[in-house]
Design a protein around this nucleic acid. Structure first.
Lengths: 355, 355
DNA sequence: TTGAAAGCGCTACCAA
DNA sequence: TTGGTAGCGCTTTCAA
């Protein structure tokens, strides 16, 4: 009841194991030639036995596994799943399998994934976002030992130590701020719900810069730092809404948290966008179907995933090539959740402040 | 610049390769004993060289990989990701890695995953939902060749050929129907958006049964069959809403599609739940944060995932054990998206029918 | 208490 | 055109 091996196939077909291997790998390019008849017999024998080459033996022999690992930081946010999907489809297209591991920014889990790489379990690793636990020195060590590695979503940096897929979020966030400011919003809250302090730095910086461009004295008092869970975003928004004067617009660090923001606004009896504007980042698949449809910055998650895998494959084929930073642009998508800051809205704010 | 092997460690520590292996596997149970001093030297050598055992060699030798595969049918629906998360966390807890593959019910991709199992790439396979491509005979063949296999979400069946995690959706769907009927709804639409005809059979049957209990002459004219995409659900709902008389409630086959339903209602100017009630299935994480919060049937996705992995592990340890069907109960969760079918609502229906 | 060696299944080099 | 065979890195049995 054991799995059949090449030897079994060879015996049944009346040839040597080497021939079976050659037939299997279609080694007709070099000096090897197999009689069509022999070939047919071998294939028939494989079919009859239900033979499948053993992956472990192949990996051991060839020194590669045809599989890549992916590490995601937050298994709840659908945005990451979208990136994984891009990676997965591209991997499948190239005949690679995907190892998936989720860390909640847990250094132990990250280390486990890195070890999987170093144990030859996977041929390369894709990290979504930058990690606290996996600091630059460790990453550089990996690269130094010539382990293929791609970072997705890292900020662009002067020195390039490993391949990176960058988002256009910094530009997109600036565009978003100008959109809101253009609508007359001045008190714009930011629900900064991230698992690690600098995971949304790109958007935070754009937010602060655009506000400062408007008013030298702008501060970050409307930035609500909170955790990455939906409930965190919800609670953060509630306390933002209870400020006086109340913000006229709220920006969530991503679309996922924007759901919590919308809920909080509803619970305070505020209509979106008439009473308050709400927007997010990522353009998750459900964003256009929300009521109201969510204004956001599209980051093209699937494309990022595909780019990451392509980068990884290129690195695997050519370990010494100069490292690359691929830029996947983002763009503002205006939908129904943002609208003008009206006079009436300001009046309401005065009232609630007085109350 | 190659990875260090046990031989390198042995040489550096001045012992034989066998000793390294023993130290590595903490083989202190049997007749083997290693001097603490030797042990220390070996560990130091491993540390110094950054030694990691080679996974392929271990798999080849041991005949197992400590990894399991998961096949998901629809990478868009967040419900499946929730199940994957449950599988992943349980797998991690048991030291197993996870191979992920998504098929859009594509038989080729399913076959590829099954082959991965048969090639010894993974120790076991978890299939989310039943498949068109992978019909019973094939599955039984797999089981017959003693390949560990678990199905998640299959309907309960009399003969049990493989381990299954069942949902309580049939009961939950009946409960949901009684909830709507109790609110006075009679014309209840069903947006049946599935990738394969019978993937929602449990809910469809409950729907039809409860309607028939109410009115012998009930038919399925309010069942809108459509694809599994958000846009499909949206379009299906639009045509449902344009019926006269219009349904007073719409049930989506899952929460994901319910988003499309909510959007369609909004686009037709209908308020939920005042003008029309909407509900779904699964209780995806965002369901309580939608506006209005979604009434649904909770299926406990993470628990299903964890159960599936436990079942798989048990099967792997004991290939001959009698096959099991684990039941993960579901329960109705009433939130804001469902409300009474009011008289006014009926009047409106008349009006729109007349118009 | 430690070492030698077989062999897991495969690929690829070399000889015939 | 086909067959013999070394060896990938590891575990484990047996001998010393």
């Amino acid at each position: 009841m054991k799995r059949p091996t090449q030897a079994d196939v060879a015996k049944l077909a009346g040839v040597s194991r080497a021939v079976v291997s050659h037939v299997l790998n279609a080694r007709t390019d070099g000096p090897i030639t197999i009689t069509p008849e022999t070939r047919r017999r071998v294939l028939a024998a494989m079919e009859q036995l239900g033979y499948q080459p053993d992956a472990a033996a192949q990996s051991l022999r060839l020194g590669r596994t045809r599989s890549v690992g992916v590490l995601i930081p937050d298994a709840h946010n659908p945005h990451y799943w979208q990136i994984v999907q891009g990676i997965e489809s591209e991997a499948q297209a190239h005949g690679y399998d995907l190892f998936l591991s989720s860390t909640s920014l847990d250094p132990d889990r990250e280390l486990a994934a890195v070890r999987a790489l170093m144990r030859g379990r996977i041929d390369g690793l894709i990290l979504l976002l930058t990690y606290r636990g996996l600091l630059d020195p460790e990453l550089q060590m990996l690269v130094h030992t010539r382990n293929p590695l791609v970072l997705v979503g890292g900020a662009p940096r002067a020195e390039c130590h490993y391949d990176v897929v960058m988002t256009g979020l910094p530009d997109g966030a600036a565009e978003m701020m100008r959109h809101l400011i253009g609508l007359g919003h001045r008190r714009i809250g930011l629900v900064y719900g991230v698992a690690a302090p600098d995971l949304g730095a790109d958007r935070l910086n754009a937010y602060l810069r655009e506000l400062a461009a408007l008013d030298e004295a702008a501060d970050d008092s409307l930035v609500m730092r909170c955790g990455p869970r939906l409930e965190d975003g919800y609670q953060a928004t509630l306390s933002l809404l209870d400020r006086a004067p109340r913000p006229t617009a709220i920006l969530a660090i991503n679309d996922y948290l924007a759901l919590g923001v919308l809920r909080a606004c509803a619970d305070r009896g505020l209509r979106v966008p008439e009473d308050i504007s709400v927007a997010g980042f990522d353009d998750i698949e459900t964003a256009p179907y929300l009521v109201p449809a969510l204004t956001t910055v599209r980051t093209n998650a699937e494309e990022m995933g595909r780019s990451a895998l392509r980068l990884l494959l290129a690195r695997m084929q050519q370990p010494d090539r100069v490292c690359q930073q691929v830029y996947v642009p983002s763009q503002l998508v205006v939908r129904g959740s943002t609208g003008p800051a009206t006079r009436r809205q300001s009046a309401e704010v005065q009232l609630s402040a007085a109350a």
